[in-house]
Structure formats: structure tokens, C-alpha cells
């Protein structure tokens, strides 16, 4: 075989292999890590078998709903004024977390509450998650 053609062929194989691996990596990772973003009302309407992966729920922290337990366990309720979602979390709540203010919670749905792995409060003190505002 001609040296030039052989070389180009080998590079082509190499490129196809690399691109293939890369695309596979991206698709598997995307598939595992896409989180749905819901309001408490939307969450209430979903059937449990739709909620097998991580979800994010945004809303306002309901007034007088934050209960601290032992060892950093905390429970609170987030609301979009129509529905409520109970959240359990172990850890320190972020700095800007306040009752009546906006919050985004990421976690796994456990049939009647959300086991949060991440709680985000927002920079802006007037922030409300966009869907709740409407």
C-alpha cells in the first residue's frame, strides 16, 4: 500500500476511535446527570416512577417550617404558594438561606419527601425562582 494512503487511513481510524469514545462518554454522562427542574406543584403531579433520578426543586422556604434535629439533620418545607414539598437534609444550610426566601434543592425523591444532597440559596435577596414568580 502507498505510504501516504496508509498513513491517512491510520489517522482516520484513530480519529474515528477517539470521536466514538468521546461521544459515548458524553452521552452516558449526560444520561446519568440530567436533573429535572420542578416546582412543588409539578412535583406533586408527577408519578413516582418518573422520579427515579436526581431532581431539583425550587420554591420559597415556608414560614416556621425549619426544624433542626441532632447531628446536623434538618427538615423544612418549600412552597410555590400552591403546593408544598417536604425536604430532609443533613448538613449546613447555606448562608443566604432564610424562611420566606427563595431556595433550590437538589436530591432524590423518597415517596413522601425529598432527601436533599444540595441546598442552594441565591445571591439576590429579592430572588424568587422564575416559575414561582409567574
Amino acid at each position: 500500500m502507498n505510504e501516504t494512503i496508509k498513513s491517512r487511513f491510520l489517522y482516520m481510524v484513530l480519529i474515528i476511535l477517539l470521536v466514538g469514545t468521546g461521544v459515548t462518554l458524553i452521552i452516558t454522562a449526560l444520561n446519568k446527570n440530567i436533573n429535572l427542574y420542578l416546582t412543588p406543584t409539578e412535583l406533586a403531579q408527577k408519578s413516582p416512577n418518573e422520579l427515579y433520578r436526581m431532581i431539583k426543586v425550587g420554591g420559597l422556604v415556608a414560614k416556621d417550617s425549619v426544624i433542626y434535629k441532632k447531628n446536623g439533620d434538618v427538615e423544612f418545607i418549600i412552597t410555590d404558594t400552591k403546593s408544598k414539598t417536604k425536604v430532609k437534609y443533613n448538613g449546613l444550610l447555606p448562608g443566604l438561606f432564610q424562611e420566606g426566601k427563595g431556595v433550590i434543592v437538589e436530591g432524590q425523591w423518597q415517596s413522601n419527601y425529598l432527601q436533599a444532597s444540595l441546598v442552594l440559596a441565591k445571591h439576590d435577596e429579592n430572588y424568587t425562582p422564575p416559575k414561582v414568580k409567574q
Binding site: L25, I26, A29, L30, I34, N35
Partner: peptide, 28 residues
């Protein structure tokens, strides 16, 4: 770029927000 813009495009098309977790970036 994909991990950053995909949620924005998705929301633009379907109006449903979603997010891509940090494990996506780390694992790829």
C-alpha cells in the same frame, strides 16, 4: 460548552428547565 448551553437550549425549546449536575463534567 455542551454541559453549559444544553440546559439553556432545552429550556428555550421546551420551556422546561433542567440542569446538568457536576458529575457530568467530572466523569467526562
Amino acid at each position: 460548552v455542551l454541559g453549559t448551553l444544553f440546559p439553556i437550549l432545552y429550556q428555550f425549546i421546551t420551556n422546561d428547565p433542567l440542569s446538568i449536575g457536576p458529575p457530568y463534567f467530572n466523569s467526562v
